[in-house]
Design a protein around this nucleic acid. Structure first.
Lengths: 219, 219
DNA sequence: TAGATTGTTAATCGATTAACAATC
DNA sequence: TAGATTGTTAATCGATTAACAATC
């Protein structure tokens, strides 16, 4: 199989293309050129064409790109044509926020179970999902085919739980715990380190007190 | 003033250095060399030294870096020596999760008010913070000195609210709404697009179905 | 002093941008 | 056909890595 190397930078831009194309589609716009899209997104047309051509030839000379086709193609590249079964480890506010976010379900991300350590919420339903005892996690995983696990629990327990997930065939971990997980190659980790994000913001706010500047960024 | 240009890539690595140094400090480790730190963090020693030297000479030849000093210096660079007054716009699960996250308060991020549009929660206290009517936002901002606003509200209302924030002197916006905000240069936006993050994860999980590979990443 | 390790310059690598032939 | 715009190669730019003199 002839695999092309795709950089992380390119992958991270795909959801943004997807969002802009979705907006165009909602506004009934049928075709778009890389030049016009570049103006709207504030990136270079060259970058758009280079990025897209990593995955295929979706455009047509003299015409541009069909919005609907390109939207669907990027959706397929992102794996949005598939359904994902997701469990949430840690039923606190953050876990609940994710379980309750309707847009995920629309895109094929199905939150099917929550787990927690707190006996006062175990057995209760939160946003239509029953909270189960964390100690029953491995039994649950052996009986259910789970693709993704959300780690929205204190970092002290994250590594141990991640090992249980990996051993039971979970493919992806959406990690909100403030810790670096070391997983086998067949388990993918996507980190959302909110603390890091807030620190980056405070850096940028306080940059005028320093002797250096920050470059602009669109992300 | 002689301002050095710092790339976004460098800035985004600083919180991770800060975290590892904090862990070393907790473990009573007094000094660390770039070589030893590079092994633990899985980055090159050269990158660590290059990154740090953008901000100053914190090390000593033949010795390495004093963990406590370096930890404090990076904290200062990140602006963690300052206090920040933060308000939350949108008191849903996500807003509550952030208001309730104790580690932010420890670092000088003080959540002082929440705003929402929902009359059934306005006037109530959530996690010790009173929820106020969103229509009173500009009056509140004129009376209080707010540094950062969290946008954890539906994207339909985000741009309008962001304008109110900018007009009233808010310096930073921590944007969880799935929209690109176009702000004046003196307002800094830090985006947390959870949908994009989840799509990146689904891309990586489904990569084996594609004819391309993803490079490894430590972040 | 000898060994270790930084700070920094130079080399390499990769990503972005520019240019343009191909073609719709 | 003429004009527009892609796909793709070449040029540029910036970030990462390597190397080493300075020095603790």
């Amino acid at each position: 199989m002839d695999k092309k190397k795709i950089s992380v930078a390119v992958i991270k831009r795909l959801p943004r293309y997807y969002r802009y194309l979705g907006d165009l589609l909602d506004n009934g716009i049928v075709r778009i050129s890389s030049g016009e899209l570049s103006k709207r997104m504030n990136v270079t047309a060259s970058q758009i064409r280079q990025d897209l051509n990593k995955f295929g030839c979706f455009g047509q000379q003299g015409y541009g790109y069909n919005v609907e086709t390109l939207y669907e193609e990027i959706g397929k590249i992102l794996g949005l044509d598939k359904q994902y079964q997701i469990i949430i480890i840690g039923a606190g506010n953050l876990g609940q926020a994710l379980a309750n976010y309707g847009n995920f379900k629309k895109r094929g991300f199905n939150f099917v179970a929550m787990f927690d350590i707190d006996p006062t919420i175990i057995g209760h339903e939160l946003h239509g999902i029953k909270v189960q005892d964390i100690s029953s996690l491995d039994v649950y995983l052996s009986k259910n085919d789970i693709d993704i696990a959300v780690l929205s629990l204190p970092k002290q327990n994250a590594a141990k739980i991640a090992d249980v997930l990996a051993k039971n065939g979970v493919k992806g971990i959406w990690n909100f715990s403030h810790i670096d997980l070391h997983m086998p190659a067949d388990v993918t980790v996507e980190n959302v380190h909110l603390t890091d994000s807030l620190m980056t913001l405070s850096y940028k706010i306080s940059k005028n007190r320093h002797n250096y500047v920050v470059e602009d960024e669109e992300d």
